[in-house]
Computed example of a mutant assay.
Amino acid sequence: MTHLSRLLLFSMLLFCACTNRMTLNKLKDQINSRLAEQPGNFAVAFKDLSTGDSLLINEQDFFHAASTMKTPVMIEVYKQAAARRFSLNDSVVLKNEFKSIVDSSLFSLNPKDDSDTALYQHLGEKMPLYNLVYDMIIRSSNLATNTVIQMVNARNVTLTMRQLGANKIQVLRGVEDSKAFDRGLNNVTTANDLMVIYEKMAKGEIVDSASSQAMIKILLDQEFNEIIPARLPKDVKVAHKTGNITHVLHDSGIVFLPNGKKYVLVILSKNLQNEANAKKAMAEVSEMIYRYVTTPRES
C-alpha cells in the first residue's frame, strides 16, 4: 500500500469515526431536549456492550435510590450464598417486624404501601430465600426486601458495591424506616454506579458467571415495564429493576437484542411535577437509544 493510499484510508476511517461520534452527540442533544420538556432532574447512563459506545448525562449526580437498591441487595445475597453462608433454598420465617437504623426501635410495614400485598398473607410461615429475592425484584416487595436485608446486612451490600467499582451507591437500610428517613438517612445511587454493576452482571463478572445469569433471569421477569421496555419491540428482552417514590421515577438494567447484542441503560429522575408525563418522556428516551443501537451506521 502506497503512502498516499494509507493517508486516504486513514482519512476515511477518521471521517467515519467522526460521523459516529456526531451521531452519538446528536442523540445526546435529542435526549436532553426531550427531558428538558419535563420539570425535574434527570440522569442517563448508556453503554453499548458490543461497540463500547456510551452516553452519559448527569451520571454522577446523587438520587434517592428508591427500589433500584434492590438489585445491589440481590447481588449481596448471591455473593454470600457463593461463600456458603446460606443457601438460596434455605427457608426464612416471614415476620413484619424490623429495627430502625436510628435507635433499633421496631417498626412494621403497611401492606397498603407495598406493591406486593400477597406476601403478607404468609406471615409466620417459612418462605424459601429464593422466593423472597424473586419477589423483591419482580414485584418490588418491601416485605421481602426488609427480610432479605436483615439477613445480609446493608453495610455488606455497600461494601460489595465498592468492590465492584460502584463508588457512590449507598445502601443504609431497608424501606419504610421513617425515623431514618426523617434524619435524611436514605439509600442513594448514581446512574453511573448502576451502569457499572449491570455491565459487570451482563459480562458474568458478579460473583461468577452462573450467579450473574441467575440474577439476570430474575430481572427478566420484572412486572413493572412502563419505562425502558415500554416502547421497544416485543422480541427485545430487558432485565431490569425500577424504583419510584413521590416525585421520583427510575429504571435500570440490561437490554438484550434478538441478534445477541446487548446494552446497559439507566434512567433516573427526581423533583418531578408530573410523573405520568415524565414516565412517557423516559420511555421515549429508551426508544431513542434503541434506535441508535439498531440503526446501521457507516464503518
Rank of each mutant, 00 (worst) to 15 (best):
K70I: 10
N25W: 15
N192R: 15
K262I: 10
V148I: 15
P233A: 00
K279M: 15
H64R: 09
F256G: 10
A45P: 05
L14S: 14
D53E: 15
S104Y: 11
S87P: 04
A281G: 02
S11E: 04
N167M: 11
V266M: 07
Q222M: 13
R139T: 14
D235K: 09
V266H: 10
G260Q: 07
K99C: 11
D48I: 04
V255F: 13
L56K: 08
Q121T: 14
L56V: 06
R173F: 01
P258E: 07
L129G: 02
Y198N: 08
V248G: 04
A283Y: 04
A83Y: 01
R6C: 02
L232V: 11
D103H: 08
M282K: 05
K99E: 15
D193S: 06
T68M: 01
M282F: 05
G40I: 12
R173M: 01
I216N: 01
T246E: 14
I289E: 06
N274Y: 07
E298A: 11
T147G: 01
F86I: 06
N153F: 06
V264H: 09
S212F: 10
H250V: 00
C18L: 15
N156T: 07
S87A: 12
A118E: 14
A118Q: 07
Q213M: 09
T295S: 11
Q213E: 12
F10W: 08
A278H: 02
R173A: 00
G165H: 11
K99N: 13
E125W: 08
Y130E: 03
K237D: 02
V171I: 12
F46R: 04
R6P: 01
A17H: 09
L257D: 08
Y290R: 05
E199K: 13
A118D: 15
Q170T: 13
R291Y: 05
G52I: 09
K28N: 11
A281M: 02
M151H: 01
G165R: 06
A43K: 08
L4G: 03
K28M: 10
L123N: 01
L185W: 13
Y130H: 05
K237P: 01
H3F: 12
N271P: 02
A144I: 05
N41Y: 12
L14P: 02
L55I: 03
R6E: 12
M1D: 02
R155C: 06
T145N: 12
C18T: 14
G184W: 01
K112R: 08
D116Q: 13
L172F: 09
T242Q: 03
S211Y: 02
A43Q: 10
I289Y: 06
P111D: 00
K262G: 04
S286E: 10
R183I: 04
N186F: 08
T71N: 00
N277S: 10
R84C: 07
G204Q: 06
G165D: 13
S91M: 09
D103C: 10
Q60G: 08
S108E: 06
E97S: 14
K26S: 14
E287A: 09
E298L: 13
V293I: 15
S33M: 11
N96V: 07
K95E: 14
H3E: 15
F98E: 05
A278N: 03
L119C: 02
R173K: 01
S286V: 05
G40W: 10
D193N: 09
E125H: 12
E226N: 13
